[in-house]
């Protein structure tokens, strides 16, 4: 793999992560626990889908085969998606949604902070804008997690259950694939393991305030970054891609 190919793969992954999670969060629109949360969750979905469009456009340019954002979003199957597994998990109850966001946001923010200093001008530009959005996402998910943990007995139980169930998807976030190793060596992206300390600190601080128990490390799921997903992703894509697949090659 040369550096160009590595860059394509990384930009594609950043796009896939943002698109898949943004799509998942958008499933709440019209169904959230309060109108304020319809607005907030939709805002977050919009931020993520906006970021995805920037990354996918860039990935298409780096690849040089003329693929545009929609070709990459709508015309790849789940085996070609390389997002982290946590982003594709179903929305579940609102505790699952908040925990899914929190575990991701706590990783996403330090990653973008580092990318805002990337030697690649385009990644740097995308990250500089996105990092402000993601600081808000992390604040929002942290505040809800604290409310749930330190709220009622029921909310505490639901939050702890979600945390225990989603924890196994966090190990993969820090596993660098070949593309990420190449780019880290060239200083284009940070070494992923270097983000772990900040992630740990954020998780421990918020869980402590929420009076929730950090699950033991245990067995970690992996595969999303290689295109080997949970069963949820192909269903999500079948829904998302239906019009583009049913009417190939037309304008919408």
């Amino acid at each position: 793999m040369n550096q160009q190919e590595a860059l394509f793969r990384f930009a594609l992954r950043m796009g896939d992560n943002a698109l898949v999670l943004g799509h998942r969060i958008s499933e709440w629109c019209g169904h959230a626990p309060a109108l304020e949360e319809d607005i907030a969750q939709t805002n977050i979905a919009l931020d993520l889908i906006g970021q995805a469009r920037n990354y996918l456009t860039y990935a298409g340019e780096v690849e040089g085969k003329g693929r545009k954002e929609d070709d990459l979003a709508y015309l790849r199957d789940s085996r070609e998606y390389i997002n982290a597994l946590i982003t594709e998990q179903p929305k579940g109850d609102f505790a699952h949604t908040i925990v899914r966001s929190f575990l991701w946001d706590a990783f996403h923010r330090p990653l973008l902070n580092a990318l805002a200093n990337s030697s690649d001008e385009r990644l740097k530009g995308i990250a500089e804008k996105a990092v402000k959005e993601v600081a808000y996402h992390l604040r929002h998910s942290s505040e809800w997690l604290i409310r749930f943990g330190d709220g009622t007995e029921e909310s505490h139980r639901r939050a702890q259950t979600a945390l225990d169930e989603l924890w196994r998807f966090t190990g993969e976030l820090f596993e660098a694939d070949e593309a990420e190793q190449i780019l880290a060596k060239e200083g284009v992206i940070p070494p992923l393991e270097s983000l772990k300390a900040e992630w740990n600190a954020t998780v421990d601080r918020v869980l402590a305030e929420a009076t929730l128990k950090r699950p033991s490390e245990g067995w970690m799921a992996s595969g999303g970054k290689k295109g080997v997903h949970t069963e949820h992703l192909s269903l999500m894509l079948a829904e998302m891609q239906t019009l583009q697949r049913s009417y190939p090659g037309v304008e919408w």
Partner: peptide, 10 residues
């Protein structure tokens, strides 16, 4: 109804 526990927790 699904949001009731969320609002109560808040």
């Amino acid at each position: 109804d699904d949001g009731a526990w969320v609002r109560e927790a808040a």
